[in-house]
Design a protein around this nucleic acid. Structure first.
Length: 455
DNA sequence: TTGGGG
């Protein structure tokens, strides 16, 4: 029995640095730490809501310690103002799991108080649980922790944070990226737009060409395209990864996401939907404390200046070669003028119609819609009349036209096989249909290119 | 009760 207990100090109200927590497995403890990781609340498998944090202090920061908190409703769980804030935890249970020490916050006897992190100077908690008592003796510990945090540099291993150009389907990864935008796309459905300056790998396309008419390959994962106003604030190079939330994750901490700030996401699940990359903020995902001067972030910011561009496979040829430098589809989408001409390097991911015999309208003119994709965006582009004659080199036989189209679309001939369209160089013209709504009626069409090579 | 590393 400790001397404190003998003097009347009740178990669980005795402060200990995180380093020493391991000696108290099976007992209750009082801890003061900095919140390094924060997982959004979710429903537990029992009756409660649960929230998983990881904390550090000056005695224990190489590896953080897990705190699992349970409360009967979300409002009672900690409402963080920022990751990196200070938490005082009283009467929490120290446990051991898989050889590691962790801590459980039990709603029946534990309590917490949240305090501002390194930039705070007041000593009043901004959110407390029932039964929490701020005590004067904690104040010096909080001040000491804030002072330590000022000079604390998280040292992240860069290899634990793959860049968007390195991501793989159906994996969970940590991402260090800049939040460009986030919005509610439907009731309680939020999307985060994140970016690190690199291009995500291109994916095979599994949609069926014959279904393009009824079930077209989407241009983006969000149900409605972003407004032009928002679109024009986004970078024109580098892929934008959409991150959506798993249904069970409670979205009452969206204020922790700051537009234009870089952030470290832990355990984001990666999927491919309709050939587009999607990150999922799952119940296991967390936000990590990301100070501005974080060395990993400084490095990523620097790397984001290096832009990569896919190498065109020249199965198309410009009729009037102007040697213009290709631009990204985001450049096209955000261009300041409604009518303009561009050269882009893209993949043709869908076509409508897709059968050579249907490419001509009733008056014998080419008329089709292509879906173009690069690492930044997708757009629809029409091929009409003379531009079709240029693209397909006149009016070849149906067989020849099929071969050309298949080459463009990456169709192998094996029925329903996923397509992997080649990168091609195209000239795009933007124009409008309605004088009263030039931006709303803006379309794109392909011109001045032809499919060449061995078809 | 519940949940639980890099």
């Amino acid at each position: 029995m400790s001397s404190r207990k003998r003097t009347g100090m009740r178990e669980g109200y005795e402060f200990m640095p995180i380093r020493d927590v391991g000696r108290s497995v099976g007992q209750k403890a009082k801890l003061i730490g900095v919140i390094l990781d924060f997982g959004f609340p979710k429903k537990s498998k029992g009756t409660d809501f649960c929230c998983c944090l990881r904390i550090i202090d000056e005695t224990h920061h190489q590896i953080s310690m897990a705190i699992n908190m349970f409360e009967e409703n979300v409002e009672r769980l900690p409402r963080l103002a920022a990751v990196g804030d200070v938490v005082v935890l009283c009467c929490v249970e120290v446990k051991s799991f898989k050889g590691e020490v962790n801590v459980t916050f039990n709603k029946r006897f534990s309590s917490f108080g949240l305090y501002k992190g390194k930039d705070g100077d007041d000593l009043d908690p901004y959110h407390v649980s029932s039964y929490f008592h701020h005590v004067r003796e904690d104040e010096s510990l909080i001040v000491k922790l804030r002072k330590w945090l000022m000079n604390f540099q998280p040292h992240e291993d860069s290899s634990n944070f793959p860049m968007l150009r390195e991501i793989k389907e159906e994996t969970s990864v940590n991402l260090a990226c800049k939040i460009l935008h986030f919005c509610e796309t439907a009731k309680d459905e939020w999307i985060i737009f994140s970016w690190d300056g690199t291009n995500t790998p291109s994916n095979v396309i599994c949609s069926k060409l014959e279904e393009e008419i009824n079930c077209p390959l989407p241009l983006q994962l969000e149900p409605l395209p972003l407004s032009r106003e928002v679109l024009c604030t986004l970078p024109v190079a580098g892929s934008i990864l959409r991150i959506m939330f798993d249904k069970v994750v409670v979205k009452n901490h969206l204020h922790l996401l700051n537009v234009d700030k870089w952030v470290k996401f832990m355990n984001i699940h990666l999927k491919v939907v309709d050939g587009l990359w999607l990150g999922v903020f799952s119940p296991q995902s967390r936000l990590r404390y990301t100070p501005n001067e974080d060395s990993l972030i400084v490095e990523r910011q620097r790397l984001s200046d290096e832009q990569l561009f896919p190498k065109p496979l020249f199965i198309t040829e410009e009729v009037n070669q102007d040697h213009a430098t290709p631009v990204t589809l985001m450049t096209v989408l955000t261009h300041s003028k409604v009518t303009a001409k561009f050269k882009c390097v893209v993949r043709v991911v869908a076509a409508m119609p897709y059968l050579a015999k249907n490419l001509l309208s009733s008056i014998g003119k080419y008329r089709m819609q292509l879906t173009l994709e690069d690492s930044t965006a997708r757009v629809h582009a029409f091929v009409t009349g003379k531009d079709g004659e240029t693209l397909f080199d006149g009016y070849p036989s149906i067989d020849e036209l099929t071969r050309k189209l298949n080459r463009l679309l990456g169709v192998t001939g094996i029925k329903d096989a996923p397509r992997d369209p080649p990168w091609v160089s195209v000239c795009l013209k933007s124009y409008y249909v309605s004088k009263t709504d030039v931006w709303g009626s803006r379309n794109f069409k392909i011109f001045g290119i032809k499919i060449v090579g061995d078809t």
